[in-house]
Amino acid sequence: MNNEHILIAGFGGQGVLSMGKMLAEAAMAEGREVSWLPSYGAEMRGGTSNVSVHISDKAIGSPTISAGEATCVIAMNLPSLLKFESFVKPGGLLLVNKSIIDKPSSRKDIDVIYVPVNEIAKELGDNKVANMVMLGAYLGKSKVVKNETLMNQVREVFGAKKPAVVALNEKALAEGGKLSV
């Protein structure tokens, strides 16, 4: 399996940290080594937050991701795109939240997918699953973990109590996946 170094960034409240966590947990459930490192402290308050996730078959060394090392950057807002676009390594993947970013990527040496996460989430009935749409797009392209494994994490959180929430998340994941095939 491929080693993934994913950097997800956006506003606080966009579910950036939990996207990273779901991804890391799913990869762990599939037997991979993982690490999850958030930005923390004052820079989180009111600003942009980000998380670095490594998925590998070997023990993870550096938990950070430097410029030019990311196999994938997910930019959920414009400041994140401007700050982290350069972190994608040549041939890597950039996912852009098209709903609130109207600037195209300046990179020509990478795959760029523009995902209208809010519009899709709204169509599905709840804006809260916008981050799941984005995760779906990422998984559709990278296939780093199975949608089903990730859904197991969602089920663990919401359990049998909220089957509607689980179903909605599953749909969001699937819809996102359609954008990147």
Binding site: K21, A24, M28, E33, V34, S35, W36, L37, P38, Y40, I60, P63, T64
Partner: peptide, 10 residues
Amino acid sequence: DGMLGQMMEP
């Protein structure tokens, strides 16, 4: 250090 405290691992 702060990184070890804040990061997640299995």
